[in-house]
Amino acid sequence: MQASIFIPCLIDRFLPEIGRSTVRLLEALGVTVSYDPRQTCCGQPAFNAGHPEEAVHLARRMLQIFDGEHPVVSPSGSCVAMVRTMYGLLDLPEEDLRRWNKLRANLFELSEFLVRDDLIGGLVARRQGRAVIHHSCHHLRHTGGRIPLLSVLEKVAGIEIIESPEAQACCGFGGIFSAKLPELSKAIGTARLDAMLAHDPDYIVLADAGCILHLRGLLSGRPGNAKPPVIHYAQLLADPDLGAGGTP
């Protein structure tokens, strides 16, 4: 099977380990991965800030780059939701609308792709300790990522998964929101972080880059040394730098 990957700008620049884990994981499952280096950003920041005409430009670029036949897989639910849902609210020309309709059906969030056709099937990864889940909002609500995420995490042997009811509550990142109203953003995030740390986890597992940067930032701003890594679920399966374990 072949798949093209979409590695959003935040991951490319700040969290490349998520991209690397995504590639390793897909390859371990026998997928031939291709990556188009022309890709940059899907246009979400501009659109979320209320400037759709700036977003249109990047959206058209995205649609032209990902106009192939292979499925497109991305480790970011937020960017997938932008393309799938929000592009529909943009003023796109006819030929790009056609491309959008094609890409919309062909674009998958990583966990969604993995459980589709049971691609992940017999995979077994191994880690030790306790992982607290935080459902990233767009992954959870726009790409319906809860069940896929749990199914993927089931493949990690030796780990205790903790999913508390407030795991579905927003961490307060919100893209441009985090810079426009930083005090509020941090207050929401701090409360989430406190709730998660109360479980004394070895890993804090998320599904989107923005929330990871936000919670990592808040965690590293705290005093103390023993801090669990805030990671993407793909890393729990396939990041060799995370210590022993991962996909065999």
Partner: peptide, 13 residues
């Protein structure tokens, strides 16, 4: 922008 101090700014990898 509030990405400093109690919430550290991400470093480019």
């Amino acid at each position: 922008l509030g990405w400093r101090g109690e919430r550290a700014a991400p470093e480019p990898a």
